[in-house]
Design a binder for these strands. Sequence first.
DNA 1: GGTTAGGCTTTG
Length: 811
Amino acid sequence: MPVCVLSQSSQIPAHLTRTSISAIRTGPDWTHACVKGRVVHKDALVPLDDDDFILKAVIQDVDSSPNTTCPEISIKMLLMGSLAKDFSTTVHLGDMVVASGFSVSKSSTVKEKQHPCTLLLSGQGACVYVCSSEVNSVVTRKRSPKAVEVRHLQPEVTSVVTRKKASWTTQAPGEAKEAKYVYSRLDDLEVGTRVNVYGVVVFFKQPFKSSGTDYCSSLKITDQSNQRIGCNIFLSKLEEHPKIFQVGDIIRMHRVKVCRFNDSVSLINTFGFSAVTFDGSKGEPVEPRTSCQTIHFDEEDQRMVEQLRAWSFNQALLPTAPSVTLSTVQPSAYFDLSCQLLAKAPLDSSCTLLRVWDGTKCPHPLLKVLVDPEMTEGPSSFSPEQENLIANVLVYDNHVEVAEQLKPGDFLRIYNVRAVLGSSKVPGLAGTQTLEQDHLAFHLHRGTAYGRGIRVLPQTSPTVQELKSVIEAFMQNEDDHAMMEVWGTPPESVDTDPVSTDSITETNCRHSIDPLTLSEVKRSNPGQVHHVKVQVKSYQPQKLHQSLKLFCDKCSTMQDVPDEDHVLGLLSAASQDRGPCSAPVWALSGQVQLPVGPAGPSDLSLYFSPQLMFDGKNKQLVFLKGANLAQVKTLSASYLNIVPVRSSGGQLALLDLSAPVLFRGRRRYYGCKKCSNPAVREPSVEGVDVVSEKLVAEALGVELLRYVLLLRLELQDSSGSLDVLLWRDAELFFNVSAADAASSQKVQDHICQTMGSLCPPEGSTVWRPWLDMCLVSYEAQNDEGINQTVYQICHTKLSKATPEPDPVTSP
DNA sequence: GGTTAGGCTTTG
């Protein structure tokens, strides 16, 4: 992507959030972040091979002042491809730049005062903005000792240079040619070069721990040239490894190096490596599988995938036989089992038991394994009928570590598992059990030969969809609802009505990321955005009026809305105070007579702004003394703003801030005790058309509290459950305003009905709607001061729900 | 911009 020269830094796209260099760390998604800094070091452009380049530069934080003791922190940037080339020609030492679309990795070498991470700018999303107007100020005001040479940008370089796509092929500077990645055929790989390739996977191993520092994915690919090329991918992060689920998947790899080993050519990942995989079946939608937030994918990629699919279909590269299930498994066979994990238990240090099912019934009796319920994750026992459906898989040695990460509910593929008939000796405690003859056990042997391994399948994978429908159909036939309830298999269609899994929510965020399961979300680092498809298992508070809170934007504290009795009491107490009280010098005072009721006296003191009186707007604001709550409510029909007041030491004063500081129609406004300096003061209303709550609050020195909705939802999917907050975007979610919820029964009913439909009360637990959600995770301290990962629902809106309009919400 | 593996002829 481009290097853009901007005349003002305000031209940087608004969706980018500025981050300081010191805040950079590995883990979070930095897609929508940018950092600003001065270029204090710039290496020469290094050509990697034909059309690829790399360039190293260092930028220094612009906010760190040379006058403070705080050292000026700098960070290394690595620019790849055409961006490196553009940067090399356009950007000079001393330039102020803003970098975006980067990823962050740990630096191997760290210099003093240099950030331990490196910004990687590669691919379509990466961009560098050069702030040309700030060059002068750099030169004159703030010359860093490190900035050995500071040059002005050429004055004529003020236009914005943009290119649409990541460039791979060499271009003449300024030539706005549509650039693209060039892919090498597998029979045209020159040892020592760096290439991009497409291929059909003919063999693969799940990533396994190498003896070095990384996980290794080992695979073999082929293409129309019929060459078969081995590839080894070394990456420290499991999630960055190519997501290969089965032979026949299509993989695209960028920046792999061609090596020779034992007289055959092989590929290995190099710096800037990225991989995207696709289902290899003809006709399936072409959906890229990647953990990368920003990938380059265009019509040409679509075509490449479709061509490879067609070719591999004719070559019969995809497994054609239907996959083996528990109902079709032959004793002694090695096979790949797609299944759902129900429970697991470690048997000894080198063997873990996975209890799985796939919704089919095995014709052979299945081995039963006795395990300590204390050691079992998930249900420790099932009914005899259920037991007949559950396969016990013993996974050994290196697979134990993978098994530890699995959660009951996960959908799995277990590769090269073996069905073992006969008397199986079971390790650990279970070894003492009576051996069952001619029962079928399943073993996942140690090592990674034959691609042995376990993989969690995402909810969106066709295999999981198929598995779910098989399980569902099985449940309907067996009428075994207990089974379903135990492990929360999403019961998409159990009632008589065929219920679709269509989501009843919309997300309006612009993240294009694959949905994850909740267990995948839980395994991710905080500071990320996730998409999930979930049901609401439960929610708090059950008494929904308690979800309404008051929030101070100034001090970020939240409090409950004072209840009606409390407000009643405070006003009633204030109305009893009949002591002498002089009106403020600025105020005009008056009296009003209300019909005598059981609740109190009829004579109330009113104080007005003379300016409003003069403007004929005396109904817009009144300070009201001696009124109880009922009387305030009555007068609310006549006065736009009512400020209840009392006498304090002969002077007019506001009530305690736990009472509403202002009544405006049905709405009540409260002030923050911490941030307010309350007093009865004359509001400046000159030239004001309508007296707003803000104007009144400002005059009174009151920091108004904002109504917010706060709910805690327990979400569930087949992989487990997760507690999340609905707060920041709660109003968007329900399509209501929290302030309306505070004053309108209709809006409150709407929220209650909505929650009731998302999470039906007891007796109708079978059907719950599915919701697409966008979650953000972040770290926050709990009450004990311990850091915890918090999840919040954001950018998510219920599709249809809108409360009926309430005719008298506001005056 | 450095190591790791470099399938496989299985098995508790």
